[in-house]
C-alpha cells in the first residue's frame, strides 16, 4: 500500500497536472525518496493509483538513470565518468573507491552502507574529478581526500 504521506505528496503533484498519469515520474521520485528504491510492488501501487498500466510505469522507471529498480545502500555514490573528469584522471579515484569499498559499479557494500554507480557529467567540469554522495557534491577529488569524505557517511 502507498502510505498516507506518499499519497498526499502524489496528490499535490496531480493537482498541478491536466491528468493523473502525467504524475508518473513524480510519483516514482516520491516513492523512491520514501523507500530508497522502486520494487515491483511499488510499480503496481503507482500504476493502480494513477490509473495507468504497470508496464507503462515500469518502462518509465527503467528509462531514467536515477530511478533505482534494485535496492541500494544507505548512501549512493555517483561518480562522474564523463570527459572532463576523464581527462584529469577520474579513473584513479574510481579504482581507489572500488578498493576501499570492495565493490564494483552497481554493487552495494556488505554493511549496506554504500552503493557505487557511474553518472554522466555533473556540470562541475572546472573542478574535476567530481562525485555526488546522496545530495552532496564533492569536487577536486584526490585519493587522499577520499577517507575523510567517506567518513561523513555512516
Amino acid at each position: 500500500m502507498l502510505t498516507e504521506k506518499e499519497i498526499a505528496k502524489i496528490d499535490l503533484e496531480v493537482s498541478h497536472l491536466p491528468y493523473k498519469g502525467a504524475a508518473c515520474i513524480e510519483a516514482l521520485k516520491i516513492v523512491q525518496q520514501e523507500r530508497g528504491w522502486i520494487s515491483d510492488e511499488s510499480i503496481h501501487l503507482i500504476a493502480e493509483y494513477l490509473e495507468i498500466s504497470a508496464e507503462e510505469v515500469d518502462s518509465v522507471a527503467t528509462f531514467y538513470n536515477l530511478i533505482f529498480r534494485k535496492p541500494v545502500g544507505r548512501h549512493v555514490i555517483l561518480i562522474c565518468d564523463s570527459i572532463s573528469c576523464w581527462v584529469v584522471g577520474y579513473e584513479n579515484i574510481l579504482t581507489a573507491l572500488k578498493n576501499r569499498l570492495k565493490i564494483n559499479y552497481g554493487e552495494t557494500t556488505e554493511d549496506d552502507r554504500f552503493t557505487l554507480l557511474p553518472i554522466p557529467c555533473l556540470g562541475t567540469c572546472d573542478r574535476a574529478p567530481a562525485m555526488m554522495i546522496d545530495n552532496d557534491l564533492h569536487r577536486d577529488l584526490t585519493e587522499e581526500k577520499l577517507d575523510d569524505i567517506l567518513n561523513q557517511y555512516q
Binding site: S82, I83, S84, P120, C121, G123, T124, C125, D126
Partner: peptide, 8 residues
C-alpha cells in the same frame, strides 16, 4: 537540463 558533458 545541462547534461552535455563538459558543460557547466
Amino acid at each position: 537540463d545541462e547534461m552535455e558533458p563538459g558543460t557547466f
